[in-house]
Every structure is written in structure tokens, then in C-alpha cells.
Design a binder for these strands. Structure first.
Lengths: 207, 207
DNA sequence: GTCTATATCTCGATAGAC
DNA sequence: GTCTATCGAGATATAGAC
């Protein structure tokens, strides 16, 4: 059994590393910081995980698994394209709300051109697959209205709120993490999805 | 005259810092790294800029000024809301293409919860202002269709391509920096803008 | 498995010759 | 203004007692 699954020292270190890496990035966190937050000694970090880069990979892997699981069932079920798209959006938003630290971490590492990029790409590839499956009969295979363009657009829309809004602070007015603010954002994203579907419908009628 | 404007040692250091901070964030770059890329000695970095945080602020300020200038004229001119919105989008896309390193840097620092966030917020506040001025008579003042929601949505859409697409690599198929790929993305963003404007038009007719 | 202690390195920053 | 040399702090990582 994986010793990081239960409540031992390794699990506490992994959780602490998760929070700190997400908050300050790979380079901004030291093994001492992680040990302190975990309530362990620094040497214990190296005993359980070998090195700082290895610990970071473990953090990424753990989240990747959670992300894949969250999206797995949401989009595969019954319903037409519109219903499945809205379910996928909700699943993505749910996951983003429950794993804010992860969203920041991924955003951080992608922006940094991280050496751990291959791990991140696996997660994105899965999501692109889902979107392509849903949009397959609504959009052209290539060009400005292809599935990959919409995938990138929706990723940006969801991530922007999760990562940017808290940083906007006074610019945004209210705390973006409050329930009311989240509900408003969710309504916005669903409205956008419907507006784009209506636009695609117009394109199909025209053709 | 500013000694960083011409081609002296200070200018080379500033350019090197710009690239490295954008690639790896503030904490991921050392003064030695910067000096080496600039072809200067480490002591020269401190002589010209005092400290690493001061150098970083200089990098941010330089870009902030360029960003403000780029958006200033684009959205203020004549035309109806649709025309001005498309001009703003083009200006943003132009700037993003010409200053890819800056986009990554801002994204990086926001995701990291940087201590330099106030500087970044000034740039975002300006853009939010522009969007609000353009959308003022098209959208409600509050709620899911308010200007700030669309601002965040469009920021996400533009940033996603600039920051995510290059990281997607093989997932994307072709090099996102090639002219053809950029033209396709630009057409996509303008199409999205028109679809959302059509949706807003529908809302207004319904009310 | 978990500690203390420490080896070794690199960091930001400075002093002082030139 | 630009160099070499170096400081003290804090980093990763390891050795070895328990």
C-alpha cells in the first residue's frame, strides 16, 4: 500500500508540498518550508521523496489522477451535444473550485515552460479529447471553428476566473471565492456556451 | 537620458532579465543567470539595478508602459460598440504576439500570488476600464452578463493561446507561433466576439 | 523511520582594486 | 564603470546515531 495514502508523515509532507508549490511555484519553495508546514523535519522530506524535483512530480501526478477522474464520467453519459457540453463545463468548474491550488500550480508551471510539462500535457490531452468528442458533429474538423480552438477558449475562460479573479482583488469588487460570486460566474460561462452553440447553429444553417 | 534605452550594459541586462524572468519567474532566476545571458558580470547587475527585486520592477514597469500605450488609442476612436470591441481585440492580440515574454511573465506572477501583484493590477485595471466603456450600453451593470465577466472571459481567451498553446506542443499539431496558426486563432476570437454580441442582442430584444 | 549534525553548494549583495 | 574576491545566509542533500 502506498504510504502517502494514509495519514503518515509522507502524506503530511505531500499535502504541505502541494499547498506551497501551488502558492509559490517550484523555485519559490524550499524543503525546509515544506517540512515546517507538514510538522516534520527537513531530513524526512528527503527520506520519503528523495529529492525536491521528485516530490514535485509526485504532487503533479496525484492531481493529474484526480483531474482525469473528475472529467471521466461527466461528459461520457447520455444527452445531446448541448447537454453533455454543459455537464463537462460543470465538472470542470466543480473541479476548479475544489482544487484551486492545483489550477494555480498548473497555470504556474505552464507559464514557466516548466521541465515538468510532459506531466501537465497528459491532463490537457484528456480534456481536449472530451471536447472533441462532444463537438465532433457541430464544428468543422479544421479552421477557426475547430474543436481545438473552442477547447483552448473554454480552458482560458475557466482558468481565468480561478487564477486571475482572486488576484484582481479590489478590481473585482467582491471576493471571487464567495458562493454568490461563483454562482454568477458559473451562469456566465453557461451563457457563453449557449451563445457559441447558437452561433455554430447559425453557421450550419448558412452552409 | 536613460542608460537602459541605448545598447549599453544596463540595456543588455534588462533584456536578459526580461527573457529569464518570463521563462522561469522571479524566484527561478538568479543574478548570475541574468549576467551570463547578458554577457556581463554578476556585480554589474547589482551596480546598475541595486537589487534583484528592483530589477524585476524595472522589467514590469517597462512592459506596463508598453501595454498601456498599445491599448490607449485602439479602443478610444470612432465607430459603434462592435467596431471598437474588434479593434480592442486586435490591439490586444497584436500586443500579445509582439510581447509574448511579457504575457508569460504576468501570467506567471499572477498564478504565483506574486509580491509584485500591485504593479500587475494597474495594467489590468486599465484594460477593464476600456472594456467597460465599450460594453456600457450593451450589458447590464451587474450579474452574469456584466462587463467585468466579459472582461475576464476575453482576457482568458487571449492569454490562453499565448501562454497555453506553445506548451501544448504536439497536442496542437502545428506551431502556434506560425503566421497561419495565428491568423486562424485571430479569426476564432473575432468569431467568438460576434457570437457573444449576437447573444447579447437576443437578450436585449427579449427584455 | 526519524532525528542531529554537517558537508557542499549557490544565492544575493558588498568591498575595494583598477 | 567594471572587475575579482568574498561575505553571510540559506539552499539541497547526506551521514550516522538512535
Amino acid at each position: 500500500m502506498d504510504d502517502t495514502a494514509s495519514g503518515g508523515a509522507a502524506a503530511r509532507i505531500l499535502s504541505a508540498a502541494e499547498e506551497l508549490f501551488a502558492a509559490r511555484g517550484f523555485a519559490g519553495v524550499s524543503a525546509r518550508d515544506i517540512a515546517e508546514r507538514a510538522g516534520e523535519k527537513k531530513a524526512s522530506v528527503f527520506y520519503h521523496f528523495g529529492s525536491k524535483p521528485e516530490l514535485f512530480q509526485r504532487v503533479l501526478e496525484r492531481y493529474y489522477a484526480a483531474h482525469a477522474e473528475a472529467l471521466g464520467s461527466a461528459s461520457a453519459g447520455p444527452g445531446d451535444a448541448r447537454e453533455r457540453l454543459h455537464r463537462l463545463i460543470d465538472a470542470y468548474l466543480d473541479f476548479a473550485e475544489d482544487h484551486e491550488a492545483y489550477m494555480r500550480l498548473v497555470q504556474h508551471e505552464i507559464a514557466a515552460g516548466s521541465e515538468f510539462l510532459p506531466e501537465v500535457q497528459r491532463g490537457l490531452a484528456l480534456l481536449l479529447d472530451r471536447v472533441q468528442a462532444i463537438l465532433a458533429d457541430l464544428v468543422p474538423a479544421t479552421g477557426p471553428l475547430s474543436a481545438r480552438q473552442f477547447f483552448l477558449t473554454f480552458s482560458g475562460i475557466v482558468n481565468a476566473y480561478q487564477v486571475f479573479a482572486p488576484a484582481l482583488g479590489p478590481l473585482w469588487g467582491e471576493d471571487p471565492r464567495k458562493t454568490g460570486a461563483r454562482r454568477e460566474r458559473r451562469a456566465h460561462v453557461h451563457w457563453v456556451a449557449d451563445a457559441l452553440l447558437a452561433g455554430l447553429e447559425g453557421e450550419r444553417r448558412r452552409a
